[in-house]
Design a protein around this nucleic acid. Sequence first.
DNA 1: TAATTAGTATGTTGAAGCAACAAATTGATT
DNA 2: AATCAATTTGTTGCTTCAACATACTAATTA
Lengths: 410, 410
Amino acid sequence: MTKYITDQALVREFNLSSVLRLIHAQPPISRAQMAGITGLNKSTISSLVDDLLTQNLILETGSNTGGGGRPATLLEMNPQVGLIIGVELGVDFVSVAVTDFLGNIIWRRREDADPTEDQDKMINQTLGIVKEAMAAGKKKNTRFLGLGLATPGTVDIKEGVLIFAPNLHWRNVPFGKIFSEQTRLRVFVENDANAAAIAEHLFGTARQCQDFIFVFAGVGIGGGLFLNGKLYRGKNGYAGEIGHSPIMAEPSQTVCHCGNRGCWETYANQYSIIQRIQARLEVKRTSIIPKLIAEHNSPLSIPIIKQAADAGDREAIDSFAEAGHAMGQGLAGLINIFNPEKIVIGGPLSIAGEYLLPAIKETVARHALPEIDQQVEVLLSPFGPDASLLGAIAIVADDILSHPSSIEGI
Amino acid sequence: MTKYITDQALVREFNLSSVLRLIHAQPPISRAQMAGITGLNKSTISSLVDDLLTQNLILETGSNTGGGGRPATLLEMNPQVGLIIGVELGVDFVSVAVTDFLGNIIWRRREDADPTEDQDKMINQTLGIVKEAMAAGKKKNTRFLGLGLATPGTVDIKEGVLIFAPNLHWRNVPFGKIFSEQTRLRVFVENDANAAAIAEHLFGTARQCQDFIFVFAGVGIGGGLFLNGKLYRGKNGYAGEIGHSPIMAEPSQTVCHCGNRGCWETYANQYSIIQRIQARLEVKRTSIIPKLIAEHNSPLSIPIIKQAADAGDREAIDSFAEAGHAMGQGLAGLINIFNPEKIVIGGPLSIAGEYLLPAIKETVARHALPEIDQQVEVLLSPFGPDASLLGAIAIVADDILSHPSSIEGI
DNA sequence: TAATTAGTATGTTGAAGCAACAAATTGATT
DNA sequence: AATCAATTTGTTGCTTCAACATACTAATTA
């Protein structure tokens, strides 16, 4: 439903949030600069800044004695205002991190996990790590601002319930309730790709960016759509299933788990790369990959292929390039549809980004409409495979940036 | 850039707009009901409604003596507040309409035109029709609220300039300047599919709908993306080029004018249907279409094929179904990406909607992810081939709904 | 010392809330 | 049938408080 402005308190909250986001996005910044940017009166800005200083959300840090006139007092975020806990539930692992308010990691742990085995077991394993995280954070002598949880699947973000995650085979899991009862923290739950998109907007490579798409490349290919300056979730929160669009490729398509043939994600997910390598190795044996597999004593994986590519292995490099071309074809379609400012690629596959990106860009340029293609920047997430973990952090920070006075109650 | 709330006048304007849109969307409605819906105080609503009554934007119409208690005074839009002129520049025609504030058509005219011949000539032809429209409107003894112009291509809506229209081969045409100088009216310019989407939201089948996609099917296939309750234009206004996504089809693809093979729009635009019919007629001659072509003494066209289908002609019906299947494949991809509430199909091709829609729905159901497909409604625009003409009207009405006090100056 | 820019203090404006009230109806009670 | 309580709608007058305007002080450069 549409949001209506009601009383003056909401106006205050809105402007407080605008000023805080401005300081967050373009630090350091002075009161006078912000008055210019926002159109708000100088004295109003001063009053809002006073509030934020009182709440310890921001700091006065030095002064800018640039041109003539009185030097400006510069303002920045206060990273120490409190800690945030982020949890990423992956398809075969759990990651937990503790960060300051700016997303700087203070503590982290990652464990393998198997969601198909037992749901309660995996949740308890996660809760165990979270409790360690809290113990580590408590040494910092500050408070926790909240806990964010990113998970594949559809999420009812208001209730904090995972509605349906096909990859985990989970339905209706009340993460919000479970984690807030166990930690006594405010808990936010969000889809992994959506969360990662918010992380890029707040901490990453899409700051200031109103229109971009985060592409989560891993077991499947998912998307976080950040449009008109906010996340787009669709009618029921399913928006962003970009991996099941067809691409133009040779007719011998494998059947996607969605039942169709030709889906983009069947050509460019991590298994497709592994299969491609395996097929190549059966024909040709000049690769160093078999040796690496033996050394690691583990099945073929993206990190191993990456290591081979780093050593100059042709098979590895070519396979990544093939996947990059498939990815580029899918992206070209998205670019035509969205005319985005940026495409940001993250997730497990992005550790091989340096090998994928040239192929991606080349294919995008060939298939997207030239007028639109010239406007878009295709980038790798600075968080790589941790994009959703940082996303879990980001959804907590984002809530505070939206409602600055809410932290009074914490 | 982000919109900042500044002074109380903006809050007033915002709430005035909220109340006006509510009356527009759910008439008739009482002050008390609106207080409930918006959360604004009863007395605030009364004050806002007084303003709108003074401006003649709304009317008190009867009272609702339903349950116990004092009967409510019901409010509706005042269609007579002023007239709107809409102009659609098509690839081979010009349409002009005069409507009241609710989009009811009072006068209209459509003429064939050839944009490739001479740009000035086509603009003068259009201006001529607009002047007739104004003469017709002046008899109604009311004012004009503005003129809207819908055109294929990319538009700088702030400056009212058509940046680039590949189908017309036009670049940098300052429609806003030209038409406001010639008519002395406020002029709004918008892309045809975007305008049509706004028409669906205000007057058509997507009222109240926050997330829907308008599909303009004609010479090409374009999209108007209405997301999170507002139009999404992308970084440079190119968003909505949905027709160049590939679909899964037999490998013998024709080359699209964009240079790629396999584009959705090459399988489902109006020429593709005409070609399909021609190919069938060369093989088989039991169709009534050759007879109809002779009767009309004009080349094969969608209306003729439609007429044949109405008469039960197999070739016509089957060709529409084939196009519908292609359309359904393209829509399935969009549905996965957007999880929209509705898909609304309009434009020239939609006159054959009754023959296309069953095939579209069947194919969508087969190719979209079931979870998402169950949420979407695929509909025909009630305005059919006039969707963009009504769109031109709608962008004027929408501006007034957004800024109710702006009409004081008209 | 003048000019310039940053930020603050004080009083004003006005949008919306609040609470009490008036208006118009229904229905139960006398 | 007349009356009165209950209920819902809409208005009036007063209060609150967020932002503005303007005049001020502060701190720097030339």
